[in-house]
C-alpha cells in the first residue's frame, strides 16, 4: 500500500449471527458493489475486498494479480472490468466523480487473518483488521473457483445528484405521528460531513416527537432511521450499534441502503414511502 486516501478498510460479508453477543454485522457498506467485485474476479461471496473511501489508494502488485473496482468509479481504476496487474505495476485510484465508496476486488481475496469469523473492519466496535496504512503489505489468497472471463459488467454509476430511497415505517413511527412521517418523507435531507461507516447523519427540518420518555434499548439493523433528541435522523450503515435507545421512525429498505452508502456529504436524500 503506497497511499491509502482518507480511509481504506478490509471488508467482507461481516459477522452475522453474533448480534446477541453485542457483536454487530459490519462488512461492506455497499454490499451489492462488493459482491459484484468478487463475482468479476471469480471469488466466493465471502472473500474480502478493500473498501476505498473517496479514492486516493495507490498500491503496487507484488505478484501478478487480477483486480477490479466497483461502486464509485475512480479515474485510473479498472472499473467493472477485471484487469491483470503485473508484478511491480502500480494502481492509482483518483477521486471519484460521483459516489463515495469504491470496492477493489482481487482474485483470491484479501487474506488477512479473520477475527470472529470475518475479515471486516468494524470501526465502531474496534474489531477486525486495522485500518489500512501506507506501507502495509496485504496477503492475497489462492483462487478457489475458475475466473469467470467477464470483460466488462455494465452497472449504473452512483448518482451525483439527489437520491430517492424507499422507506418503510419503523417500530416507533407512532412516537412521531402522521405529521412526523409527513416531515420525514416530505423533505430533501442533506447528508452531513459527520457521516461515516456507522451512519449517515441527515440535516433538515427536525422531526418532532409526540411523546417524551425514554425507550429501553432495542435491537436494530442497517437502514434504521434513528431519531436522537435533536430530531435529525441518523441512517444506520454497516457499523451501526447492535442496540440503540432512541426511537426508530422508519427503515430504508435493505436493497436501497447500498445506494445510500454511496452518498457524499452535501448530497440530498429523499425518502419515499414504500409498501411493507
Amino acid at each position: 500500500m503506497l497511499a491509502t486516501g482518507p480511509l481504506t478498510t478490509v471488508q467482507d460479508l461481516g459477522r452475522p449471527g453474533q448480534a446477541a453477543l453485542g457483536i454487530g454485522r459490519s462488512g461492506a457498506c455497499d454490499r451489492a458493489s462488493a459482491a459484484l467485485a468478487n463475482r468479476l474476479v471469480g471469488n466466493r461471496a465471502n472473500a474480502a475486498v478493500l473498501e476505498v473511501t473517496f479514492g486516493g489508494l495507490t498500491l503496487r502488485a507484488e505478484a501478478d494479480l487480477l483486480v477490479v473496482t466497483t461502486g464509485a468509479r475512480c479515474p485510473g481504476a479498472p472499473h467493472a472490468a477485471p484487469t491483470l496487474l503485473r508484478r511491480g505495476q502500480e494502481l492509482r485510484l483518483g477521486p471519484p466523480a460521483s459516489g463515495l465508496r469504491t470496492y477493489l476486488g482481487v482474485r483470491g481475496g484479501i487474506a488477512v487473518p479473520p477475527v470472529l469469523g470475518s475479515r471486516a473492519t468494524d470501526l465502531l466496535a474496534g474489531l477486525g483488521p486495522a485500518v489500512i496504512a501506507t506501507g502495509d503489505v496485504l496477503p492475497v489468497g489462492e483462487p478457489v473457483d475458475p475466473a469467470p472471463g467477464v470483460d466488462l459488467a455494465p452497472v449504473p454509476e452512483p448518482t451525483a445528484g439527489e437520491l430517492t430511497a424507499t422507506v418503510l415505517p419503523g417500530p416507533r413511527a407512532d412516537w412521531f405521528g402522521d405529521a412526523g412521517w409527513a416531515a420525514l418523507t416530505g423533505q430533501a435531507w442533506t447528508v452531513t460531513s459527520e457521516s461515516n461507516r456507522v451512519g449517515l447523519r441527515l440535516d433538515g427540518a427536525p422531526l418532532e416527537r409526540l411523546r417524551a420518555g425514554e425507550l429501553p434499548s432495542e435491537g436494530m439493523v442497517r437502514g434504521a432511521l434513528q431519531v436522537p433528541p435533536s430530531g435529525l435522523p441518523v441512517l444506520f450503515l454497516a457499523d451501526h450499534p447492535v442496540t440503540g435507545g432512541y426511537p426508530v421512525i422508519g427503515y430504508v429498505t435493505d436493497a436501497d441502503v447500498d445506494a445510500c452508502a454511496q452518498l457524499r456529504p452535501g448530497q440530498a436524500l429523499r425518502l419515499r414511502p414504500g409498501r411493507p
Partner: peptide, 22 residues
C-alpha cells in the same frame, strides 16, 4: 427462538423489552 430459530433467521437479539429477528 435461539434454541430453534425459524428458517431464514440470521440473528436473534434480545434486549430489555424486545427481541429483534434479523
Amino acid at each position: 427462538l435461539s434454541a430453534d430459530p425459524p428458517h431464514g433467521v440470521v440473528d436473534v437479539v434480545p434486549a430489555a423489552r424486545t427481541v429483534l429477528l434479523m
